[in-house]
């Protein structure tokens, strides 16, 4: 699968380690310069700032009761939002790959809307829909459920902004899926559910997990969409990014950076985990 033609040609070229193409020094120089200035230097700044705090003070700031409440809300909401996206994303990916129907291309294009729409716009839009007098809010009110200005609103905003991840990671795997096993199972009389559970799901789940993990990571850091709909009640519906923002507005830079260092560490660990997971899973695919 996808074997590069270089292996087939009697090639002197493309030997690893031998640099035939120009521009190595230049592109290395530009890339390293840019990454150092734009990424590494600011991260170092945060480390320096937090290192200046004493351990006791650091610990007190990051375990403050209101901050701990915001960790909990953010983690719960992000977890539920990414599970919702796992289900909805799998459904959308399946329908987009397996079936033909009018409007399919439009649906495929619309899936990217949450990535393209600025988060602040998503925030005021979802608030307008889910507010008690909004189109959806009125329906939920009939059921006695309040969505906007409660933690439920945070889940809605997070699932909206990270919806495309699962669709876009599962879609290519489903497209490349070889139909032989599946056709054999169906012709032998296996039910749809059995085929899905025994053949399709085992092939899809690494991609599905990647999508859910990406969705979770994005949700943890989501700010713009959430703050409009959350209501931002201390101890109830304040997310962790907002806590950093609040500390900044109190001009407490030390506390803001301490909380930010926790968030940064968590997202870097998640990022590394996802990359390792993908590397392992891709190797398995290529090794077939």
């Amino acid at each position: 699968m996808n074997q590069s033609p270089s292996g087939l040609l009697p090639g002197r070229s493309s030997q690893p380690g031998k640099r035939v193409l120009p521009g190595f020094a230049l592109s290395l120089g530009v890339s390293l310069f840019f990454i150092s200035i734009v990424l590494i230097l600011p991260v170092t700044g945060l480390i320096v700032q937090t290192a200046g705090m004493g351990w006791a003070e650091y610990w007190a700031v990051i375990t403050d009761e209101r901050v701990v409440a915001s960790y909990k809300v953010t983690l719960w909401a992000a977890a539920l939002a990414s599970i919702i996206n796992g289900v909805v994303g799998l459904l959308l990916a399946w329908v987009l790959v397996r079936y033909e129907f009018p409007g399919k291309r439009l649906m495929d294009a619309l899936v990217d809307l949450p990535f393209a729409l600025p988060t602040a716009v998503a925030g005021i839009t979802l608030t307008a829909l889910f507010a008690p007098d909004g189109w959806y809010g009125q329906l939920f009110a009939l059921l006695g459920i309040k969505v906007a200005f409660t933690p439920l609103g945070i889940i809605v905003a997070m699932s909206f902004t990270s919806l495309p991840f699962v669709v876009r990671t599962v879609q290519p795997v489903l497209e490349d899926f070889a139909p032989e096993d599946e056709e054999a199972a169906v012709s032998l009389g296996a039910s749809d559910w059995t085929v899905f559970r025994r053949i399709l799901f085992p092939a899809m789940w690494p991609a599905l997990m990647t999508g859910v993990a990406l969705s979770f990571t994005r949700s943890l850091g989501e700010f713009g969409a959430v703050i409009f709909i959350a209501g931002n009640m201390p101890y109830v519906s304040e997310i962790i990014s907002l806590m950093i923002f609040v500390r900044l507005q109190e001009f407490d830079h030390a506390a803001a950076s301490a909380i930010a260092s926790v968030v940064l560490l968590a997202s870097l660990i998640l990022l590394l985990g996802i990359n390792l997971w993908q590397a392992r899973y891709l190797r398995r695919l290529q090794g077939r």
């Binding site: 945060l46 940064l264 990359n275």
Partner: peptide
């Protein structure tokens, strides 16, 4: 090479508020 590819993903993983804070601190 692989480390470099992971490094440029940092802005995707980091909360935008943290990103702003990094620059404000520096």
């Amino acid at each position: 090479r692989k480390a470099l590819i992971t490094l440029i993903d940092i802005p995707f993983a980091v909360s935008p508020v943290v990103a702003g804070l990094l620059y404000l601190l520096l």
